[in-house]
């Protein structure tokens, strides 16, 4: 399974259809369509990407929705959790040192996608990215700008930034994606892996960047959205028991009573493991056999004494 997590979405349907068909031809299986929000977040956060798309798409291709937010100011990012419900993947594009730090340390996002054609003022720091990686936030490398860019400075900056990113992250937690503004910027997975290996990322790491790491981004964000605190997810809760006829109900009742009796006879109830311990709950502790014997003997003794 190969992932391309950054394909810009346009409302030009014909072009989009071509792009998606070409991605399928190249061998990608999962594609995320990106909607970019720059500046202030609009009031209506719903995704403009219609899924399913208004044209036929290859059957084996899975499409996701992704949101790219430009982080211009560190103070105005409090509505990000609301965005999470609308999109499959949430990516942030920090524009300066401060927002990059914020994105790495605290923001609740899935991907950090830097604009690598820019020249950054400071070196990337290992510490910053390692906190991001330990939180499960991956860092994205978009190769297409280097291919399509006409000016050499953009290409140079891209390569130097990528090499720096690879050095700083030790090649871990990097996701390779295209961000192709046109169809011509898309490349086959093997070509991307080779490109990354020329830039200093090993073959294996490069492949992970297209498969394993990208998959973990998708799955983490899905878990974040659907599960309880990102830990517990109910996949299938079972069906509710259907109310049958009255006779059946009675049967059920009898069963219930029986079960209650059986449970009472057990030494320890299963649910007493959780919740309040027995000593605090005020419930009677079931008697042990020894205790019962002792009580019996006592009662017998008392009876004898009375008889005497």
């Amino acid at each position: 399974m190969f992932y391309d997590l950054n394909v810009p979405w346009t409302d030009n349907n014909r072009e989009l259809q071509r792009t998606i068909a070409f991605l399928d031809e190249l061998g990608y299986d999962v594609v995320a369509l990106t909607h970019t929000i720059s500046g202030k977040l609009p009031a209506d956060l719903t995704s403009p990407v219609p899924l399913p798309l208004p044209f036929s798409t290859p059957s084996r291709l899975r499409l996701l929705r992704r949101c790219n937010i430009f982080l211009n100011d560190a103070a105005t990012n409090h509505r990000i959790p609301q965005l999470q419900q609308q999109y499959d993947i949430l990516a942030a594009r920090p524009t300066d040192e401060k927002t990059l730090r914020q994105a790495c340390d605290t923001l609740d996002i899935d991907l950090i996608s830097l604009d690598l054609t820019q020249r950054f003022q400071k070196h990337f720091k290992y510490k910053m990215f390692s906190t991001a990686l330990s939180r499960g936030v991956r860092i994205e490398i978009c190769y297409s700008q280097g291919i399509l860019a006409s000016d050499t400075t953009a290409k140079r900056n891209l390569i130097s930034n990528v090499v720096q990113l690879i050095r700083v992250t030790r090649g871990r937690g990097l996701v390779l994606s295209s961000e192709a503004k046109s169809v011509l910027g898309l490349r086959a997975p093997s070509d991307v892996i080779n490109l990354a290996s020329v830039w200093g990322l090993g073959q294996e790491r490069g492949k992970e960047g297209l498969t394993k790491e990208a998959r973990s981004v998708v799955e983490f964000s899905r878990l974040k959205r659907t599960s309880f605190k990102g830990v517990v997810d109910v996949i299938y809760g079972g069906e509710k028991p259907v109310d049958g006829s009255a006779g059946k109900n009675e049967n059920n009742k009898q069963n219930k009573v029986k079960r209650a009796n059986a449970e009472a006879q057990k030494k320890r109830k299963a649910d007493s493991m959780e919740g309040t311990p027995l000593s605090q709950s005020g419930e009677d502790k079931p008697l042990s056999k020894r205790e019962i014997k002792r009580k019996k003997q006592q009662a017998r003794l008392e009876g004898q004494q009375k008889g005497n």
């Binding site: 190249l26 299986d29 086959a188 093997s190 498969t211």
Partner: peptide, 13 residues
């Protein structure tokens, strides 16, 4: 045949 999934070997060089 059309619905069969690609394996990694089909795609990778």
């Amino acid at each position: 045949k059309a619905a069969r999934r690609r394996t990694e070997r089909d795609v990778l060089v």
